[in-house]
């Protein structure tokens, strides 16, 4: 299903690249803007299915784009936002994942855009309510977080990392060359070890991801 997308990116070159990429995969770019206030205005005027935004943007040239996205999700918690970033640092991703219930958000390093098909798929997953976190960011988090993640086995951590990328069990099974039943077992074990509530599987996946994104 084609998505209606708003893009915010201050580099003209990259903005054009993103437009042709997303349109190539059949989506509609409603408007592409170059600064944070324009992003807020565009989304307020016509609510898109997905916001794709840069972190560092005018007017402040700090994390204006990220803050605008977080602000938009405060007024509209269901608004899917995919943030493109040059920073591996988890505090950026953390601010985004803390907004709303952490669903329908994505944080990807800009390096990933080049893998166009994967990028388009990630955008669609975020628009569908999934949480997608860049593998590089996750790797750093796994290095840092000790408890309660210390309780997880290495295999469970791998599964959790893939969950953080927004993958379903079937996709995780393919990646790790195991059966889907084995993945299901790992996922239940992760939920148990992280003391996550039993109800609502999709929500628990998000909570598991958030568990190690929060300090």
């Amino acid at each position: 299903m084609p998505l209606r997308i708003v893009i915010a990116e201050d580099s003209v070159l990259l903005r054009e690249g993103l437009i042709s990429l997303l349109e190539r995969f059949g989506h509609t770019v409603l408007v592409a803007v170059g600064d944070a206030p324009a992003l807020v205005a565009a989304v307020t005027a016509d609510r898109p299915d997905l916001v794709v935004t840069d972190v560092r943007m005018p007017p402040g040239h700090t994390d204006d784009g990220l803050r605008a996205a977080v602000g938009l999700r405060e007024t509209d918690p269901g608004l899917p936002v995919l943030v493109l970033s040059q920073y591996v640092e988890q505090s950026y991703a953390g601010k985004l994942l803390d907004s709303g219930d952490g669903r329908g958000v994505g944080y990807l390093l800009k390096d990933r855009i080049g893998a166009v098909a994967d990028f388009a798929a990630a955008a669609e997953r975020v628009a569908g309510g999934a949480t997608v976190v860049d593998p590089e960011v996750v790797r750093q988090l796994l290095r840092r977080r000790q408890d309660p993640l210390q309780r997880l086995s290495p295999r469970e951590r791998e599964v959790l990392a893939l969950m953080a990328e927004g993958r379903a069990n079937a996709a995780i099974a393919r990646d790790l060359f195991v059966t889907e039943a084995a993945v299901n077992k790992h996922v239940s074990s992760i939920f148990a070890k992280l003391d996550l509530p039993v109800a609502g599987d999709q929500h628990r996946r998000v909570l598991a991801v958030l568990a190690f994104l929060r300090a």
Partner: peptide
């Protein structure tokens, strides 16, 4: 700032162009 606004953005754009060309 110069590296972020210049080289980094250009390289990302280049990567996107290459990705689209691969399609």
């Amino acid at each position: 700032r110069d590296l972020h606004d210049g080289a980094q953005q250009r390289l990302v754009s280049l990567s996107v162009q290459l990705g689209l060309a691969r399609l």
